[in-house]
Amino acid sequence: MSKREQTPLIRLENIYKKYTLAGETFNALDNVSLTVNKGDFMAIIGPSGSGKSTLMNVLGCLDQPSSGKYFLDGEEVEELSENKLAVIRNTKIGFIFQSFHLLPKLKAIDNVELPLIYRGMSSSERRQQAKEALEKVGLGDKLHHVPNQLSGGQQQRVAIARALAGIPPLLLADEPTGALDSKTSRDVMGLLQDLNEEGNTIVLITHDPNVAAQAKRVVRIQDGKLTEERVEAS
């Protein structure tokens, strides 16, 4: 699985995202084209306001571009209905957020089960798959803890398990270490690297060059424009 396949998982072609603020139109994404292959570990780096969150939302099918083409796993995403986008988010993308975005009243395992519920999976199958995902991130003994009873690093691990549970082709991480101290950050980044080693495609968004340094490939975004920064020699 660790073998790199050269089939593009993500292909962005001339993506524009326009916003109108106080009568003035500006491009949050300005003619962005990008290809991400299966097995990639790519960091998108840029300061705040550079358009990286917008890019993240477009990549995550949470938002749609104003123009341009977006192919995810061979399927053209734009022009899809709300429902179809929900299905794509559910089956193709695992989100990891800066502030974890766990549901505070649900136990770890129930949080991890959430994407599987919306897939209509049977409850026993769900349990099993969620348990495996939590074991994979090293939380096999914390299945029935609610987020409050877990440390920040553990919460982020639960969130990573939730992203993994549905076995999506793409993991999309938005500042995954932004709310963590440096030691925990290293742990989480290590976990992401392990996951990449196992063949998961990861796209990570960060403003931190140290975090970006751990990715195989880095692209920089500035004023909505994308520039290739570094590609690891394979």
Partner: peptide, 15 residues
């Protein structure tokens, strides 16, 4: 926020 999380995880409008 909960609704946003659920939607990001694939909840459809009808869900």
């Amino acid at each position: 926020k909960e609704i946003g999380i659920r939607k990001s995880l694939g909840a459809k409008q009808r869900d």
